[in-house]
Design a protein around this nucleic acid. Structure first.
Lengths: 185, 185
DNA sequence: CTGATCATGTAATTCGTTACATGATTCC
DNA sequence: GGAATCATGTAACGAATTACATGATCAG
């Protein structure tokens, strides 16, 4: 029974608690999104499939003021999640970075044009870092309350990661500003 | 005239010299692949489209021992490339990292299981770094000869980037080995 | 009462990979 | 002579985004 990565995102989120598709999507958008995104177009059909295969159970909540269907993990779902978490299958690793792609081809640009591009790339990573810092307090609180430290640690990684790229951009910008030679580090 | 990112990869590679589709693919596989991949299924049809729109010209090489079609940039192709390189359109930035995804959900794992996963993630990044180091001398030489420093600088970034992640994994592995508390950095 | 948010879903489209098919040439 | 590499292409499939449709409820 091969599951998609998105399926595991869902199983993982349900391990953290009973949730609707909408809630899963909202959570993803402030947490895993930075290294694994998911859209409604994936989540709802995948929930359907997971229920069909008995890895999750959905329940219409009659008490809730809104019409909604909340899901939780079945024992089989827990097992599937744990199996994936400990499996030695090759990891899907993928980076698509248009800023780096442009930089690769930047030999024809003037120093001014190049600095401008580096600034734009840096701005994007600063924006991401800011978004992460915005959710950090909530993540810290939730983590402490529930004894779950990994979501916060992943967030810290994301911050360090973005800072790393921001620093790299900044160094190059400075060097180019000083009538710089384009020599490597 | 909106072009795909893959189209720009091709234009960029042709800016560096006259090339066949096969050669472009080979080059991509040892250079941009780490932050922007491309397959034959994209390259050949895209070359066709680019020729149709007059951004590249292809020529059957009669002198060459093999039957092949080499392409080069037209002035319009050069302009399109330069326009993209200096444009302020939002950058496509995407990271998909199954290792981080697992780490995010790792609160249920035993320290041993977690260390094992971190090791696997580290191994993948070490492998990538090794691949980059393998092509580094050639990239350095080619860059010096032709005065094109950015491909090499991008490679150096890739190395630093992978080392950054490798270090992060290593730190956590050590902490976990010491009967570690899972506290954040 | 009105806009924001909660909530569920689907259809169309785009993007990209994988696998296959084919054949020539070069290296050992 | 046979394996590796050069070389071009396509078809099928899968993964994911975007946009759309729909409607209820909540906050001001």
């Amino acid at each position: 029974m091969e599951l998609s990565r998105t399926a595991y995102v869902i199983l993982g989120m349900l391990k953290l608690g009973r949730r609707t598709g909408y809630e899963i999507k909202s959570l993803v958008d402030v947490s895993t999104r930075f290294f694994w995104a998911a859209s409604y177009g994936q989540i709802y059909p995948e929930l359907e499939r997971l229920e069909q295969s008995g890895l999750v159970t959905g329940e219409r909540e009659a008490d809730h003021p809104r019409r909604r269907k909340a899901y939780e993990l079945t024992p089989a779902g827990e097992r599937a999640l744990h199996h994936w978490l400990t499996s030695d299958a090759p990891l899907h690793l993928e980076l698509r970075h248009e800023g780096l792609l442009k930089f690769f081809f930047a030999d024809g640009l003037s120093p001014e044009e190049e600095v401008e591009q580096l600034r734009r790339m840096r701005a994007e990573h600063e924006r991401m870092a800011a978004q992460m810092r915005a959710v950090e307090p909530a993540a810290r609180l939730a983590g402490e309350e529930r004894g779950e430290h990994h979501p916060l640690m992943t967030l810290e990684f994301g911050l360090a990661y973005n800072d790393f790229i921001v620093d790299w951009c900044r160094r190059l910008e400075r060097r180019l500003a000083k009538g710089a030679p384009a020599e490597a580090a």
